[in-house]
Design a binder for these strands. Structure first.
Length: 1043
RNA sequence: GCGGGAAUGGCGGAAUGGUAGACGCGCUGGUCUCAAACACCAGUGACUGCAAGGUCAUGCGAGUUCGAGUCUCGCUUCCCGCACCA
């Protein structure tokens, strides 16, 4: 019987389901292993072949670990809150819960097709109230905690309240807002309850604050920076503006140092760690207060990472938005400064980026005083200084900073060297820290290492500055003015936010009539009628917080819910959390490098502080799967310019016979690379010209008139339009020939059919001749367009096709993101239907390393399919004969098997699935060559293959007579003894170049190997009579003779 | 500008300092077939040679080493992320 995946696969899929093969228990004597994929957002487009790449690789690891004796948690769920469902709801009125449910059902069908070992009894959905009650619960805990710097962890706000009552906030080392005032216990007690609450908000780990956000009026919502691309919303491309709104914020900055340190203890890709480090952006430096000449009460604080360069500061630059700009500007400079501020603030981010190299700025006319030497330095404003980073003011050191150097050069400001190692300061800044200081007062002659602490000590003694750590990391805005997200479990009473009672969780998303913001700009939840909270013991009801949580809320902790998915008492029981501990291996795309992966770490650190998460870091190991890109097919549509060839043959050639041309194009038309050409008879000139070439037309007209000839101008754009109706053109040419006048073919341009040209024919024409059109990849096979199918495809339907000499129509191709709009989406269902799930799984692995991005290309799939058939053929012969027999295996058969065991085991551990597939191919080829039908070899081979091709393995395993699933077999043990051979073929190098090989006994000594090697005639020849200076013998590897 | 990664036949890729190109695709030849497809067998980096063989080959240039695709330094190109971060 032939290998028939279509029969085998559905059979075992339903068996696994019926027998709950993939359900996993929290009680097991086996060691645990938790492997996790980033859960998908269930989009309406369904899965494409790129999505399952990581799922397949991790499924292989999960199945392998299970065979190795682990209790494996391999769950899957859905990140099911999100903007697309909401947008769809706005368009259609369909509740997002309904469309999301449909999308999930489709995802599930597609996933089930592929034969994953997910434990679906643990499925989670972030939009399920039973799930998001715990997202809300964690939010409440964040609200109730602050970050205590002495304890180095989050502590309850109640503790803070009692400390304040005892001694005020003096001496309290806690992370809080920059503008938190100092107060005594007495002052605290004198505050009203509301004042106290407002003050505590400055400490809470989540809190509402007025902040600038990316407000998108068209979507009626706030977007994250990630969601804004080039000044417009990523989705929909609507304009985005900066707007001050009251937003919930997460005090992630409290954890900046811990998030940085934690990176050292996890096995994550260096690129991700580096991105997180950059995102957190810790820089150590100093803050320095500069006095302002003539303003005794004004100080400008700057942050610098190079305080050692302070004697080289020859000017100061403020951000245009800096609060002191108006006050400090001298009257003489007022007009210039105002103009610059106005100009700078009106510029968009894009413009600022595009003109990054251009130096702009304005002089305020004021002077700052360098605290070290009293030097008066001019104060400028410039938009290269950002208001949002540091203090919005910098001391400019042109000798050490290139941007300052550019500015100084442009405005002719002095450039003072400060280190003797600085070079070529007339060419560029030199940021070196080498050498010794010059022109630098108290640090003259010192090195960098000595100078910095000296300066900071001086500043701290004088109270003019201090050592300071600055982060790029901002607190994370947590509110979204959207419907389809978790409601925030808080209500507003007297302008102060309060948490709802825990027993009222989950706070369920209310029904609304429309999913849009209200006319007054309030979030969609404002539409919910009677949606108010009545606290226990109160008569009055209060308005809930109307914004919802962002997409990353649910995904920041979901990995705990899989551990204990049905628990109604806790987000995860302590026992379950203790047992599963943390994710052993996390797999997903690198696009989440600083979003999801940073927020999850933050929440996990917080949950760890509360004793709810066993580990500080939630995922020990992370691997990024590459993106599978689409391979788009493209056809060329003739446009604007015309084929001379076509014009010649179909239209003009017939007239040449009658009109005896005097001049024809210099080159033969087929070879022509130009588009304008002409021919001339006794009394007629025909010119074919480009559309806009008016100068040329005028010149032709004049010369034709001078010669007394009639002129026919043909615009090749119009000819292109007439390409399939050449009789129209021909009629015009005839009319022109019969007429006595100049003739422009310009009136009536009927919309015509289009001409598509085989890619192979396009090479000799300029790309301008064509527009490129994406066509559906399902119409194309091996780059040949299926013309029958194409004729039915809307965008090609009325076209005519110019094919190659062999009758094929070739398409060109391009690697692009897999996307509906490129018509390059390949659906896994189609692959599974054609080749089977096992083949699809293995082929996707065989494409290349999982981590690498690569275009989807099915060219090689027949190789994998052939392999599976041959593997099957080792077991099932002609007429369904069962081949495995009980004979004892021979040494070479055992060697082949154990070689495969060794390599596959190693390669799964290092996630090298593509080489695993080739090891299986090698084993199969070897066993076929040996005509091996021995059960002792074939049965372990089935187990090895089971993680990759579970259906095929299950079928063969049962045919071998087993009652239980191959999933519960034991991974074959490697016996190194079988790998040993009696002799080894050694390569012999002379001076590192391969010159000969020699067969030597396996256990040979270095001396014997050397003797044997030197005795070889080939070796002697290459040594050319010279003595061997040295012989390197690497046992089992090679021999190198150095002469 | 900063950070990360990559570069190997016609193609995807293999090689964790030790015979570069495993495995697969494609291609060429052969067997089978009336024929095609499938299947099977053999060959397949380039140059050179009747052959044995030789020479050259892992983006470019140096270096370390008995030995470098692999390590180090310097370049080039491409991809990803961040981007005027003081």
């Amino acid at each position: 019987m032939e290998y028939a995946p279509r029969d085998i696969e559905p059979k075992w899929q339903s068996w696994w389901k019926a027998n709950r093969t993939y359900e996993v228990s929290n009680n097991s004597s086996r060691p645990k292993y938790y492997i996790l994929n980033m859960f998908p957002y269930p989009s309406g487009a369904g899965l494409h072949v790129g999505h399952p790449l990581g799922y397949i690789a991790s499924d292989i690891v999960a199945r392998y670990k299970r065979l190795k004796g682990f209790n494996v948690l391999n769950p899957m769920g859905y990140d099911s809150f999100g903007l697309p469902a909401e947008q769809y709801a706005i368009q259609t009125g369909i509740h997002p819960a309904i469309s999301t449910e449909q999308n999930i059902r489709r995802y599930r069908e597609q996933l089930d097709n592929i034969g994953f070992s997910f434990d679906w009894s643990r499925e989670v959905r972030t939009s399920d109230p039973a799930f998001y009650r715990w997202t809300q619960w964690i939010f409440m805990r964040l609200f109730e905690h602050y970050y205590d710097l002495d304890a180095g962890k989050a502590l309850p706000v109640e503790r803070l309240v009692s400390v304040f009552a005892q001694k005020g906030n003096n001496g309290v080392r806690a992370v809080c807002d920059e503008d938190t005032p100092a107060f005594t216990a007495a002052e605290w007690k004198a505050m009203s309850a509301k004042e106290q609450q407002l003050l505590l908000l400055k400490y809470r780990l989540t809190f509402p604050e007025e902040s600038f956000v990316n407000w998108c009026p068209a979507l009626g919502t706030v977007l994250s920076n990630d969601e804004v691309k080039d000044g417009v919303s990523e989705r929909g491309g609507y304009p985005v503006e900066r707007k001050l709104m009251k937003q919930w914020s997460m005090r992630i900055t409290a954890y900046a140092d811990r998030l940085l340190e934690g990176l050292n203890e996890i096995d994550w890709p260096e690129s991700i760690k580096e991105q997180q480090r950059n995102w957190i952006g810790r820089s150590q430096g100093a803050s320095v207060r500069f006095a302002v000449d003539g303003y005794p009460d004004v100080f400008i604080e700057v942050f610098t990472t190079r305080v050692d360069t302070i004697y080289g500061a020859t000017f100061m630059v403020l951000a245009p938005e800096h609060e002191l700009v108006t006050r400090l500007t001298a009257n003489a400079q007022r007009a210039e400064v105002d103009a610059y501020v106005k100009w700078a603030t009106s510029r968009s981010e894009i413009e600022r980026m595009a003109e990054a190299k251009k130096v702009t700025g304005a002089n305020t006319g004021a002077f700052a005083v360098n605290p070290f030497n009293g030097a008066k330095i001019p104060i400028f404003i410039a938009d290269y200084v950002l208001a949002g980073y540091g203090t919005g003011a910098v001391m400019a050191v042109p000798s050490g900073d290139q941007r300052d150097w550019n500015f100084a050069t442009h405005f002719k400001l002095p450039i003072v060297p400060i280190l003797d190692a600085q070079q070529d300061l007339d060419q560029a800044a030199d940021a070196t820290k080498d050498g010794r200081y010059i022109n630098s007062g108290i640090i003259n002659g010192m090195t960098y290492e000595e100078a910095t602490p000296t300066l900071i000590r001086w500043l701290e003694e004088k109270g003019l500055g201090r050592g300071k750590v600055q982060y790029k990391l901002r607190n994370a805005v947590f509110s979204r003015q959207r419907y389809w997200g978790e409601p925030v479990p808080a209500y507003w009473k007297d302008d102060v936010p309060h948490l709802i009672d825990e027993k009222d969780l989950p706070l369920v998303l209310p029904e609304v009539d429309k999913y849009l913001p209200t006319e007054t700009g309030e979030p969609p939840l404002a539409r919910a009628e009677g949606w108010k909270y009545t606290p226990a013991g109160e008569e009055q009801s209060y308005e809930y917080e109307l914004s919802t949580m962002p997409g990353w809320a649910g995904s920041s902790w979901y990995f705990y819910r899989y551990m204990d998915p049905h628990n109604e008492q806790a987000f995860c029981s302590p026992e379950a959390a203790q047992y599963w501990n943390s994710v052993d291996w996390y797999i997903g795309g690198s696009e989440h490098a600083v979003g999801h992966l940073l927020y999850s770490r933050f929440w996990n650190h917080f949950l760890h502080d509360l004793g709810l998460a066993p580990e500080r870091e939630f995922a020990k190991k992370l691997t990024n799967q590459g993106m599978i890109q689409g391979r788009s097919s493209i056809v060329y549509r003739a446009k604007e310019r015309f084929f001379e060839e076509y014009l010649w043959i179909k239209v003009l050639q017939p007239y040449f016979a009658e009109y005896h041309p005097l001049a024809i194009p210099a080159s033969t038309l087929e070879e022509s690379f130009t588009y304008d050409f002409a021919f001339e008879t006794n009394d007629l000139v025909i010119e074919v010209v480009s559309w806009k070439n008016t100068d040329k037309i005028e010149a032709i007209r004049k010369s034709a008139e001078a010669d007394g000839k009639r002129l026919l101008i043909l615009f090749n754009e119009e000819l292109a339009d007439h390409i399939n109706e050449h009789h129209v053109t021909a009629a015009k040419v005839r009319r022109a020939l019969e007429s006595r006048e100049r003739f422009f073919m310009s009136e009536e341009t009927p919309v015509s059919e289009q001409l598509f040209v085989s890619h192979n024919l396009t090479a000799k024409y300029s790309p301008d001749c064509f527009s490129r059109l994406h066509v559906d990849v399902s119409l194309v096979k091996d780059d040949y367009l299926n013309l029958e199918k194409a004729a039915k495809w809307p965008l090609l339907a009325n076209g005519s096709f110019k094919v190659d000499a062999d009758g094929h129509f070739t398409c060109s191709w391009e690697v692009e993101k897999m996307s509906k709009r490129f018509f390059n989406v390949v659906n896994p269902d189609d692959m599974v239907a054609e080749y089977g799930a096992d083949c699809y799984r293995m082929y996707e692995m065989f494409l290349g390393p999982v981590e690498m991005s690569k275009p989807w290309d099915t060219k090689g799939i027949t190789g994998v399919h052939g392999f599976l058939r041959r593997f099957w053929g080792l077991f099932v012969g002609e007429n369904n004969a069962w081949l495995p027999n009980g004979e004892a295996p021979a040494a070479d058969e055992l060697r082949a098997l154990h070689n495969c065991i060794k390599k596959v085991t190693d390669d799964i551990e290092r996630f090298s699935m593509n080489t695993c597939v080739s090891h299986f191919m090698i084993l199969t080829n070897e066993l076929r060559a040996l005509k091996c039908g021995k059960r002792a070899i074939l049965e372990p081979a089935v187990i090895l293959l089971a993680p990759f091709a579970p259906h095929l393995a299950e079928e063969l395993w049962r045919r071998l007579g087993h009652e239980t699933s191959v999933c519960d077999a034991a991974w074959p043990a490697l016996n190194e003894e079988y790998l040993k051979t009696d002799t080894i073929t050694y390569p012999i190098q002379i001076n590192g170049k391969l010159r000969a090989t020699i067969e030597l006994p396996a256990g040979i000594s270095a001396a014997d190997a050397e003797t044997a090697a030197l005795a070889l005639e080939q070796v002697q020849k290459w040594m050319d009579g010279k003595p061997a200076r040295k012989v390197v013998f690497v046992p089992g590897r090679m021999i190198n003779v150095v002469v």
